[in-house]
Amino acid sequence: SELMNSSKLIRMLEEDGWRLVRVTGSAHHFKHPKKPGLVTVPHPKKDLPIGTVKSIQKSAGL
């Protein structure tokens, strides 16, 4: 199965306009000026399962 580095996923979010608002432990929480909701990324993780990545991307509207 495909894995993604959390840094790469965070870069994709930031390029889309998401900004880090809070860190709780290894959970990084992002908000967007125009899009609704809060997106949480486990970080640092070298090997996020593709299912997790897809669900984060979906929440972020990517």
Rank of each mutant, 00 (worst) to 15 (best):
S55C: 13
G17D: 05
G51M: 10
G17E: 05
V21H: 10
S55N: 11
S6C: 03
V53L: 06
I10N: 02
S6Q: 02
D16W: 03
H32S: 02
K45A: 08
V39I: 11
H28E: 04
S55Q: 14
S6A: 06
P36Q: 14
P49R: 06
P33A: 09
K45Y: 07
L20S: 06
V53P: 01
L20E: 05
H29R: 09
S7T: 13
S26F: 11
L13E: 00
L13M: 06
S1M: 10
S1K: 08
H43I: 02
I10P: 00
P33M: 07
P33Y: 07
P44S: 06
K46E: 15
S55V: 07
E2H: 10
A60V: 04
G25L: 12
H32F: 01
Q57S: 08
F30G: 01
K8H: 14
T24W: 07
M12L: 11
E15F: 06
E15T: 07
R22T: 09
S1Q: 14
H28N: 10
G25I: 15
V53F: 03
S59C: 10
S55M: 12
Q57L: 15
S1C: 14
T40C: 12
P44G: 05
S59I: 13
V53G: 02
W18G: 00
I50T: 13
Q57E: 08
R19F: 15
S59W: 05
L38R: 08
K54P: 02
Q57N: 05
I56T: 02
V23M: 10
I10Q: 02
V21Q: 06
I10H: 02
V41F: 03
S55L: 12
G17A: 03
H43W: 05
P36A: 09
V39Y: 01
P49L: 05
I50L: 14
H28R: 08
S7A: 14
G17T: 01
A27F: 15
R22D: 12
L38N: 08
E2Y: 06
S26E: 15
T40L: 07
V39C: 04
K46Y: 13
L3P: 15
L9G: 01
F30T: 00
S7F: 12
P33G: 09
V21C: 08
I56R: 01
H32V: 00
V39R: 01
T40P: 03
P36D: 07
P49A: 11
Q57W: 09
R22P: 01
E15H: 10
L9S: 01
M4L: 08
L13I: 08
L3E: 12
D16Q: 05
T24V: 12
V41S: 00
L13F: 01
L48R: 01
M4W: 15
R22Q: 13
P36K: 11
W18S: 00
I56K: 01
W18V: 00
G37A: 05
R19L: 13
V53H: 03
K35S: 03
K8L: 12
W18E: 00
G37V: 03
K54E: 15
P36Y: 07
A27C: 13
L62T: 04
S26M: 12
E15Y: 08
A60S: 05
T24C: 12
K46N: 15
M4K: 07
F30M: 06
D47W: 11
S1P: 10
L38W: 12
L9A: 04
H32P: 01
S7R: 07
D47Q: 09
K31E: 13
I10V: 05
E15K: 12
A27L: 15
K54R: 13
H32W: 00
M12Y: 07
S6T: 04
G17Y: 02
I56A: 02
V23L: 06
P42N: 05
S55G: 09
E2F: 07
R11L: 12
S7H: 14
S59P: 01
H29G: 07
G51K: 12
H28G: 04
H43Y: 05
E14N: 10
P33C: 10
V41G: 00
M4S: 11
K8G: 10
R11V: 10
V41Y: 00
S7M: 11
K46I: 14
T40S: 14
H32I: 00
R11Q: 14
V23K: 10
L48I: 13
T40K: 12
N5A: 12
A60H: 02
H29W: 13
P42G: 04
Q57V: 14
F30S: 01
L38G: 06
K58A: 13
L13T: 00
P49Y: 05
E15W: 06
K34R: 12
D47T: 11
G25H: 14
K34P: 00
H29T: 15
V21K: 05
D47V: 12
K54I: 13
P36F: 07
L13R: 00
R22C: 15
S59A: 15
F30D: 01
T24G: 09
R22F: 12
H43K: 02
L38F: 10
P36I: 07
T40H: 10
W18A: 00
H32M: 00
H32E: 00
L20R: 10
P44L: 04
L9E: 01
T52G: 03
H28V: 12
D47A: 12
K45Q: 11
V21N: 05
I56V: 07
M4Q: 13
V21L: 07
F30I: 00
R19M: 14
I56G: 01
M12R: 08
A27S: 13
L20A: 09
A27Q: 13
